[in-house]
């Protein structure tokens, strides 16, 4: 990996961390905890398409760890990691299949992200009403994923390709 790639990835990681912070400044108070847009996933999706799934996984995991140490706690890191790892891996598999566009890949990633977080919650919190949360957070993840995918498309066109390095 060349220094330019590392620098570019570091820049994108910083952007992803910042997106999470910017989003926390927007006071959207929905009745159910865990529903949010996930602006940082624009970066994750972009990295997945510009680089490979390995870089996307690295950036997303580092983002969760950095944000967790800065603003959260060990629980938020555990929830975040389970969601993000499942999301990136499922997006990578879907992209690799070649049958889906960026919006479909991102939508699936959004759903899997919330499923991963719910699974962690079900394991950590005793008596967690998993089946009640599941459909609601699946729909929320789907909607967020579609929006992120739709935004990622024009963003990707403006970002320099990895071939340029």
């Amino acid at each position: 990996m060349s220094a330019k790639r590392i620098a570019y990835l570091g820049l994108l990681l910083a952007l992803a961390v910042l997106f999470g912070y910017v989003e926390s400044l927007i006071p959207v108070n929905l009745a159910i905890p865990g529903i949010k847009l996930g602006l940082a996933n624009i970066v994750i999706v972009a990295v997945l398409y510009i680089f490979t799934w390995k870089e996307a996984l690295a950036v997303s995991v580092l983002r969760v760890v950095i944000i967790g140490f800065m603003f959260g706690n060990l629980f938020s890191i555990a929830f975040g990691l389970s969601g993000t790892v499942l999301s990136v891996i499922s997006m990578a598999l879907l992209k690799h299949s070649g049958h889906f566009g960026i919006v479909g890949v991102s939508a699936f990633g959004g759903v899997m992200h919330n499923i991963g977080q719910l699974a962690a919650a079900a394991l950590i919190v005793e008596g967690f009403p998993f089946l009640w949360y599941l459909p609601i957070l699946m729909l929320a993840g789907l909607l967020a994923g579609i929006l992120i995918g739709a935004v990622s498309l024009p963003v990707m066109k403006r970002l320099p390709r990895i071939n340029d390095f």
Partner: peptide, 19 residues
């Protein structure tokens, strides 16, 4: 968007709706 994307989104809407 590809046709598969629409199918995927439809399926991902249907599953939580049924649940």
């Amino acid at each position: 968007m590809k046709r598969n994307d629409w199918i995927l989104i439809a399926v991902l809407t249907l599953i939580p709706a049924i649940l």
